[in-house]
Design a protein around this nucleic acid. Sequence first.
DNA 1: CCGGATAGAGACAACGTTGTCAACGACGAG
DNA 2: CTCGTCGTTGACAACGTTGTCTCTATCCGG
Lengths: 338, 338
Amino acid sequence: MDKQDRRRRPTISDVAAAAGVSPKTVSRVINNEPGVRAELADQVLAAISKLGFRRNTMASSLRSGRQTATIGLIIEDLANPFYSTIAATVANVARAHDTHLITVSSEEDPDLEQRQFLQLCQRRVDGMIIVPAGSDHSYTRSEVEMGMRMVFLDRPPSGILADSVVIDNAAGARSGIMSLLEDGHRRIGVVIDSPVIYTARERLAGVRSALAEAGIPYDDALVKVGVTNPEEAAHAIATMLDGVDPPTAFFTGNNRSTIGAIQELYRRDSDAALLGFDDFELATLMPRPLTVIAYDVQELGRAAARRLFERIGGDTSWPSETVIPTHLVQRGVQLLKS
Amino acid sequence: MDKQDRRRRPTISDVAAAAGVSPKTVSRVINNEPGVRAELADQVLAAISKLGFRRNTMASSLRSGRQTATIGLIIEDLANPFYSTIAATVANVARAHDTHLITVSSEEDPDLEQRQFLQLCQRRVDGMIIVPAGSDHSYTRSEVEMGMRMVFLDRPPSGILADSVVIDNAAGARSGIMSLLEDGHRRIGVVIDSPVIYTARERLAGVRSALAEAGIPYDDALVKVGVTNPEEAAHAIATMLDGVDPPTAFFTGNNRSTIGAIQELYRRDSDAALLGFDDFELATLMPRPLTVIAYDVQELGRAAARRLFERIGGDTSWPSETVIPTHLVQRGVQLLKS
DNA sequence: CCGGATAGAGACAACGTTGTCAACGACGAG
DNA sequence: CTCGTCGTTGACAACGTTGTCTCTATCCGG
């Protein structure tokens, strides 16, 4: 075969030799530095394309001490549409800054998150966007002191002062519940993830705030916590509907639970109202009415990325918390026919 | 504030000085090389954690000439669930090889794809997985000669011999259409992307093959090509249904078109059969019956990543083409009630 | 025609790490 | 007691690039 077994990559010195100049002159040409005669520059460019030279980014940023033009993104699971939307948005902002994005999954494991964080530090990324899994980020402190920039996304950091971008969870849940109350619902079933998780805690707080304001007592039998997937949500809904004095409306704390609720409510032909946190792609084709607490996921990622690049650009102002607003939207396939 | 303005990162020499040993000894310790007295090693480790030293990955792989433990993934759009599933799977395989993943979007622009490819080469990634946007990849040849490994995903390469992993597009479409024919359908509307795109071309070929075998003439009025989003698909469906002798069944060439078709068919209460290429997350909750041509998206990404790491590991066998099989699945919310 | 300014080019060292090899003391065999 | 060996340790150079400085030739005003 014509395989010329791993030809060595040409270096700046090879180019210099081929063009009959010094390595430094080649460096000047590839960096568009002034002070090279046009004629010589042409020779160098010719040699570069003849040899197929590509400057070694690692050597370059090692020597120059400049940015590595790489940022890191630590999320729970890239396969989740919420996170992949964020990753796509962050990558777009990064590209506008000629920066590459390394995405790693923490799989909700605080230990793994920490290991991934340190590995990215070793790579000398210019900064990181973190969706925290753990609840203590003091381990980042020494890295921050040495110049690592971080922005926390979707959940605030703890044990360290840093920028964050979050959704207005409590207000969103609160306004959603209030709208159910206005519609006359008095028994509202709540299906939500474990309050260990920041977003679940905040959303539940929003629910309680709305109920308290309406003078409706908080009924433990109507609140199921620790629900993490559609099946558990469907089961929780079923249990509540089968109980005495069943709810006339449900609040589900995230889109996974909402999916489970739709399945169960549709299966039973139940006409209970459904309010879910998080919009999702095919919500308009769901076989029953529902209301979702929506927000701009792209804006969430964009805001975090922008903040990060401000920091990388030299911003040393006091850490900020950006809050993304929510709004209520009607969903369900019945809207198509009207 | 207590900001100690960008403390310099400690190097191996700083650790050496703190531990009273030579830099080489520190290097031996952090690389778990034998031949260091336990006592000395402890001193070194103490100095490392005291100073918060993190080995500079770039300097390390520059000097050692070893792999950079980074691979690249070039896709069209990370926000698309198909690609994000692939990205997640590839990242998982990469993590098992202690490798980081840089994901970049080509946005279906061949020029951008080429630029991204070259940038990743400059970073000296160990290999790349590419979902080709362009139709000529001869520009990769010089890089391949210099040792860059590539695996093409979802579409085969052109102008270069390389590994690829693709779906069995033609056979999938063919068997789907044959199943429609068995159900007695004779007029089948086809809504598909531009045949410039490999997958659309193959799927259309599968359709024609099945029709030809059944002796059904190919009717141009029943084939709409160049459809890229749900709205166009819905419109194409509407036009065909409003024509004379409308179809009794539709084939949509990808999940975006399928969504558009569902919307239009549901809106009209049409009972036309629907067959769509690609399964999708909430297909089980769609408000009408449909059949999807499904395949294991994760397996697609996993196979490509595995092949890439085989190459990185030194495999120099002849390039292979892996074909992922498809199968037909019934979807739609009506299945929930049975 | 001279002195100083200026532009162009290269020599050299350094970024942080690690491969190579030499140096050292301790040890056992002869 | 001597020699070779082994186990440790360090000195040095090099990976590919670029910042700093020096050197040379050219140009201008006087």
